[in-house]
Design a protein around this nucleic acid. Structure first.
Lengths: 352, 352
DNA sequence: CTGAAAGCGCTAACAA
DNA sequence: TTGTTAGCGCTTTCAG
């Protein structure tokens, strides 16, 4: 029962002192019991636990944190929650943190640098034990804050650039290059690109750069492109695919590279619905390796972004450093994005 | 610049006192400036702001919260982040909270009551301004904690039951009934049910109960059912659909009711791939109204769970109560789930 | 408009 | 094994 089962429950939140009085044990010892710290006799321990339970006492971490300057929070700052990639990163982070005292606190930036700065400031003001933040690009002020925070900072997703402290991710340039090479090797030549209207999505930009760079080396370039924003990605994928194909009937495209799997899946459906031979007439590829591709009629070629693994590794870096009391310096972990050929990136029937 | 541009940066975090000394203004006045509280002359204000910026000072909310017993955190406790429904609820919550001082902090329970209890306890120990928690079913201890917390508690998603304080959601029983009625009205008779192996998903259970209840009134019952857990829901939807259809060739099923849209979409794809006439031979329906259904070859019938709206309304209840200083009692908001007929729940060609 | 004093509820450090 | 004494960094309150 809570708040003294029977008495009029006092509306003031319970304190350690209340438990101390109810159990006849000093506040300090109560505190020890509640934190499993130091040696306490089994008898006192039982008395205290009983009193705390009986009262319905919930410790005040605010006070505890102030007194001990220890805060078991990890700030996680990500651009969005709505595109399937970050929830999976979160899952990886939580998997690891569940085994520790640490708790993730999430802030969303909507891909806006100023918003990121604000969110970071807010979170740092809670003096978390560490920060996990998406991307390597931040405002000067944000970088300064992180540099001065004196806690482990892990920048995730991307390793193409300078990290403040630690980083875990893949090289998106490399991912773009690798996909371009696979497409070229399969004999495709007239390549269309379909992506999001997101000048601030640096990772998509880097993939694009790597992609075009390799094409250029083979004397190729993007034949046409199409961008979208908002709405159901699957539907947009369909619409964009229709648009780009209809626009290029004279010299038809033979490959479409999508900046994410969801629009890629939409494109795949469009092609299947319209009797277009995939990958004979046209090849397709997306990016991310999201699980639901598994249920499509054909498996879309994609490149795994290692989301779960990134979350795990980032959380581990924080956990390790917290445990080791802040010693140990920054580490950079570059994961290798693996190409998944699927059914939509096979050599054309008649390579030119 | 941070930490005194040029000097060796002190590794101790900056305090108000540092800003006070750097600006020659009392701590109290510095505090006023930084919080935009009370009247401060423009001159002092400028001096303080300058000093704070120059030092790279980030306030310590732990100390602030302890002193003022005001914490701008809202605890949000949900079962999962990985099935598209809760991220959308989160979006609704954030939409509203962005316009306030409040910040959401998320905890994940994985549909486990004990885990929910732990997470709740952890979060309450930060003395948040409010709690938004999924569902009406909680352990006794969890209910006691929430009852005694003295802050607004909003239970979301479901309104079939007793709320501790406030609630926002739909009646899942009603959603189940409504779908059953629509299916019966369309003339379907041999109905299969496909769902998740989740004894603790009370909302799915309630939908199922409402569903079978209405069937019973028409002298019908579920002809067969199939359950899954884990893995790609889209793929599982395919597999389960194949299994249930192959199991019932003698007396074929003419309708499949899925407990969520993702497996429903998988089922739809299976049918289309195998030349099964939807909704002629067989009708299909899911649950949730997730946006991505828009891109499928046929639009799956579903029932909108009002996720965004639930998030918004819940956040508004908290915001309003925090603003009104805790007065105003609990309120229950029951949203109406709307049936979306789509292309897969039309009357059969030849109603029996 | 500005400042001084007194805690908020807990824990570190030391003493018994 | 248990208790005592000081704060943690800020805000409240009240006095200039």
């Amino acid at each position: 029962m809570s708040q003294g089962s029977g008495n009029t429950p006092p509306k003031r939140p319970l304190t350690l002192r209340d438990v101390s009085e109810a159990s006849g044990v000093s506040e300090m010892t109560v505190s020890r019991v509640l934190r499993n710290r130091g040696d306490v006799s089994e008898a006192t321990r039982a008395k205290v636990l009983e009193a705390a339970r009986e009262l319905g006492y919930v410790p005040n971490k605010i006070a505890g944190a102030l007194a001990s300057s220890r805060v078991n929070l990890v700030a996680v700052i990500i651009p969005s929650m709505s595109n399937m990639v970050f929830p999976e990163v979160m899952t990886g982070i939580n998997d690891v943190l569940e085994g520790t005292e640490l708790q993730a606190v999430v802030g969303i930036t909507n891909y806006k640098p100023e918003r990121e700065e604000t969110v970071l400031y807010q979170m740092l003001s809670w003096r978390p034990s560490g920060v996990i933040i998406a991307g390597l690009e931040h405002t000067e002020a944000a970088k300064a804050m992180m540099g001065a925070a004196g806690i482990p900072i892990v920048e995730i997703m991307d390793t193409d650039g300078e990290a403040i402290d630690s980083a875990v991710g893949i090289s998106h340039r490399r991912a773009g290059r690798k996909m371009a090479q696979a497409i070229i090797d399969a004999g495709y030549k007239r390549i269309g690109f379909l992506g999001t209207k997101m000048p601030l999505d640096h990772r998509a930009r880097k993939r694009f750069e790597g992609f075009t760079e390799v094409l250029a080396k083979s004397g190729l370039e993007i034949s046409d492109s199409e961008f979208y924003s908002g709405g159901s990605a699957l539907k947009k994928g369909r619409e964009m695919t229709e648009a780009i194909l209809k626009r290029n009937v004279e010299e038809p495209l033979d490959f479409l590279y999508y900046s994410n799997d969801m629009i890629g899946a939409g494109g795949l459906m469009y092609c299947l619905d319209n009797g277009i031979d995939v990958p004979g007439d046209i090849g397709l590829a997306g990016f991310n390796g999201i699980e639901f591709l598994d249920g499509l009629p054909r498996k879309l070629a994609t490149m795994d972004a290692c989301r779960l693994e990134i979350g795990r590794a980032a959380a581990e870096i924080i956990a390790k450093r917290v445990e080791s009391d802040g010693s140990a310096g920054g580490e950079i972990i570059t994961l290798e994005p693996s190409l998944e050929i699927g059914d939509t990136l096979k050599r054309k029937k008649k390579p030119v």
